[in-house]
Design a protein around this nucleic acid. Structure first.
Length: 286
DNA sequence: ATACAGGCTCGCC
DNA sequence: GGCGAGCCTGTA
C-alpha cells in the first residue's frame, strides 16, 4: 500500500516503552505492511492504521481500544526487564530490542499462522499468510483501501488440500485443514482453553494436527498471553547452546526446556523474543 | 545448484 | 524418553 492514511487517529498511552516498527518486525506477526508513515494491517476483522512518531503512537480512531489490547500496551515493560536474569546476552538483547512488546493476537489466526510456520523463514511465512488471506479472507475496509482478514476456520476447514497447497503450504496443508475443521465444528473451542493452566493448555494445543511443543508455545505466547511460554526454535536453540551450554556436549530438548523455564523466569517469553530478535537481525553471524 | 529454513509425526530403540 | 528419517517449497 502506497497511500498514507488520512483519517482520524487516536493517541494511545503505553505502560513503559513501545517500539511499533520493531514489534511488527520481530517475527510474531507477519501481515502488517508499510503504509505512509506507519503500518496498515488487520486485527481480527477490523482494519487498522498505526503510526509512531517519537514516543507518540496513534491509531485509526475506531480501532483504538482493540489496538491497545493487541499491542499489549498494558504489559509492565519496566517490571518485565527487571525480572530478567542478568547476563551479557540478556543485557545486549534488551538494549537492542527496547520497546518490543509481545502482542495479543486473535487465537485462531495465531494458531493457524504458526501451524504454517514450520521449517519456514519469515519471508515465506508472510507469503503463505498473504496467499491465504487473498484467497479465503473476507475483505476489510480501511479508508480508501481494502485489506483482507485472516480466513476464518470455517472457511479453511472447507477448503480442499489442493487449494491450500496452491497457497504454498506443502505438507502443512492437511494439518491446517484438519485443525481448522476441529475449530470450526466446535469440537475444539480455543476461547475455552483460556481457563487452563500453562501445562494443560500446552497439552491441549499439542493434540491439534500440526502442533508440537514449539508451535504450542508460540500460540501460548503470542495468542494466549502466557508470558512464561518459551518457544525453542533453531535460533534460540543455537543461542542456548552457545551461551548457556557452552561446555556441554549433548543437551537434550527436554533438558533445554527445563533450563529455560527456570532461568528466564515468569517473563521468559519476553526474554526469548528479545534473544531471538537480536540473533536474527542484530548480532552478526559467523 | 544443493543445502537449508523460526517442525511435526512416525517408527524404532 | 531419545534419536533418525521423511515431508513440501522458496530462498540464499
Amino acid at each position: 500500500m502506497s497511500v498514507g492514511w488520512r483519517g482520524a487517529t487516536t493517541i494511545l498511552e503505553s505502560n513503559g516503552a513501545f517500539d511499533l516498527a520493531a514489534t511488527l518486525a520481530s517475527g510474531q506477526v507477519f501481515h502488517w505492511q508499510p503504509c505512509g508513515r506507519g503500518f496498515a494491517g488487520t486485527i481480527g476483522e477490523v482494519g487498522v492504521y498505526a503510526e509512531q512518531t517519537g514516543a507518540v503512537l496513534s491509531v485509526s480512531e475506531e480501532a483504538a481500544p482493540l489496538a491497545s489490547q493487541y499491542f499489549a500496551l498494558d504489559h509492565p515493560l519496566g517490571e518485565i526487564y527487571a525480572s530478567f536474569p542478568v547476563d551479557d546476552a540478556m543485557t545486549a538483547a534488551v538494549t537492542f530490542c527496547h520497546g518490543i512488546r509481545i502482542v495479543r493476537q486473535p487465537l485462531w489466526e495465531c494458531l493457524a499462522t504458526f501451524i504454517t510456520s514450520s521449517m519456514k523463514q519469515v519471508a515465506h511465512i508472510a507469503q503463505m499468510s498473504r496467499a491465504l488471506r487473498e484467497r479465503f479472507g473476507e475483505p476489510v475496509a480501511l479508508g480508501e483501501t481494502t485489506l483482507r482478514a485472516y480466513p476464518l476456520a470455517e472457511r479453511i476447514g472447507l477448503a480442499d488440500e489442493a487449494e491450500l497447497r496452491a497457497c504454498g503450504l506443502g505438507y502443512r496443508a492437511p494439518n491446517l485443514r484438519a485443525t481448522a475443521a476441529l475449530v470450526a465444528s466446535g469440537e475444539v473451542n480455543l476461547e475455552d482453553l483460556r481457563k487452563l493452566d500453562d501445562d494443560a493448555l500446552r497439552l491441549a494445543l499439542c493434540r491439534l494436527p500440526g502442533v508440537g511443543v514449539k508451535v504450542a508455545n508460540c500460540v501460548m505466547l503470542f495468542g494466549y498471553g502466557r508470558l512464561r511460554a518459551f518457544p525453542i526454535d533453531v535460533w534460540i536453540e543455537r543461542i542456548l547452546r552457545e551461551i548457556y551450554f557452552a561446555r556441554k556436549r549433548k543437551v537434550t530438548a527436554t533438558r533445554m526446556r527445563q533450563f529455560a523455564d527456570g532461568y528466564f523466569g515468569p517473563y521468559g517469553g519476553y526474554a526469548q523474543q528479545y534473544l531471538f530478535h537480536r540473533a536474527r537481525t542484530g548480532a552478526r553471524r559467523r
